[in-house]
Each structure stands twice: as structure tokens, then as C-alpha cells.
């Protein structure tokens, strides 16, 4: 079907978003065209403002609109421990647990050889920089427990250990509320490895 140029362009731009195929892009485009002008303006303004005002924190690389970010500026956070995650959304997930009081480092990605993404594309150098002054006692690697996340953790552990900083990996095992019988053998094997004393 042939659309006016402006609609075709909108569809094309929407198509470049992750997870949006041509059909979804078309649906979104027509949805926007049906909306009141002020709704569309608000959306466009929000996108633009976020893009203009958000940058990565010079310390932890998390997305922020102040430098350093609120977490890095918080005097109550323990700076001797850095928890390394793949994406900003992982920081939110960990903060929701209320369990962790240290600081973070966001890699903005993960080593993915099949996609041609190597360690150079991640914020690893910035992390090593933070370890230089000796104040950090532990780095906790909390990348996802998939192949890419494992590879990234292994690679980073290799770089960090020689610096004499304790390097740990988050435990993996049976999910809460899960059935032993329901777990696959890899998960079971790891859960067994990660066992600890009770009582």
C-alpha cells in the first residue's frame, strides 16, 4: 500500500525501534494520527527531553540527569562494593529488593560474540578505572545467567582478579516458589553447587 510520504516516514522511524515490526509500526502510526495533537506533542516532548537531559553517570555509568547520579552521590551507600549489571533496568530490579547497600556499575550491554559485540563495546574500562584507588574491596558480577552474561562475567573476572579485588558471582539456583522437579538439570546442578549451611 502506498502512504503519503509523511506517514511512510513515521512508519519507517517506528520500525527502527526494538521489537517493532512493520505491522506494529503501522498500527502505532495510525494510533498517533488519531490522537489529539496535544497528546502527540506531549509524547514527542517527553522523548526529546529524555534524550537531551539523560546521560550516563561519570562514575557508575547508570543513566541519570545529574552528575554524579543520585546513587553515587548518596553518602549512605557503601563504596567498597560494586555490583556490576548489564542494563540500567537491572539496577532498578536490585534496588527493589532493598537488600543491597553498595554501589553499582552498568555495562550497557553484554559480550555477544555472535553479534560481534566484544568487551570493547562495554563500559569495562570505566570499571577498572574505579578499582584503581584501592577503595573497592569486592566486585559482584550480576550479569544474566545466560551464555552472554556468563562470558561477560568470566571475562571481567579475569581482568579484575589480578588487581587483588575480591570478585564474586551472584548465585544461581531454584527460583523461589519453584519445584525441584520442575527445574532443568543445569539449574539443579548449580543450585547444588551454591548450597550453604542451614540452622
Amino acid at each position: 500500500m502506498l502512504y503519503p510520504k509523511t506517514i511512510a516516514r513515521l512508519i519507517e522511524e517506528l520500525c527502527s525501534l526494538p521489537g517493532v515490526g512493520p505491522k506494529t509500526a503501522q498500527r502505532l502510526a495510525f494510533h498517533l494520527l488519531r490522537e489529539k495533537p496535544e497528546r502527540v506533542e506531549a509524547l514527542a516532548a517527553a522523548m526529546l527531553e529524555a534524550k537531551q537531559r539523560i546521560f550516563s553517570c561519570g562514575v557508575c555509568q547508570n543513566l541519570t540527569d545529574v552528575e554524579p547520579c543520585l546513587l553515587c552521590a548518596d553518602p549512605a551507600r557503601d563504596r567498597s562494593s560494586i555490583l556490576v549489571v548489564e542494563e540500567p533496568k537491572d539496577v532498578l530490579a536490585l534496588e527493589r529488593t532493598g537488600e543491597y547497600r553498595g554501589s553499582y556499575h552498568v555495562l550497557h550491554g553484554v559480550i555477544s560474540p555472535m553479534d560481534g559485540i566484544g568487551p570493547g563495546a562495554l563500559r569495562i574500562g570505566e570499571l577498572l578505572e574505579r578499582l584503581k584507588d584501592g577503595g573497592v574491596k569486592e566486585v559482584i558480577l550480576a550479569t544474566n545467567p545466560d551464555v552472554e552474561g556468563e562470558a561477560t562475567a568470566l571475562y571481567m573476572a579475569r581482568l579484575i582478579r589480578p588487581l587483588g579485588v575480591r570478585t564474586t558471582r551472584i548465585a544461581r539456583g531454584i527460583p523461589v516458589g519453584g519445584d525441584l522437579d520442575y527445574a532443568d538439570e543445569v539449574t539443579l546442578a548449580r543450585a547444588l553447587e551454591g548450597r550453604r549451611e542451614v540452622g
Binding site: 560474540p113 551464555v147 556468563e150 562470558a151 568470566l154 571475562y155 532443568d184 543445569v186
Partner: peptide, 19 residues
């Protein structure tokens, strides 16, 4: 799973080679 080939996911060089 029949065989998991854990070494291919847990050893960096082997993982890179398998990839």
C-alpha cells in the same frame, strides 16, 4: 537435555570456539 556441554558455557575460550 541429553548433554549440556557445560564447559562450552563456563570456559571462555571454549565458549568462544563453540560460538
Amino acid at each position: 537435555a541429553v548433554f549440556g556441554f557445560r564447559a562450552l558455557r563456563e570456559e571462555l575460550e571454549r565458549m568462544a570456539a563453540a560460538s
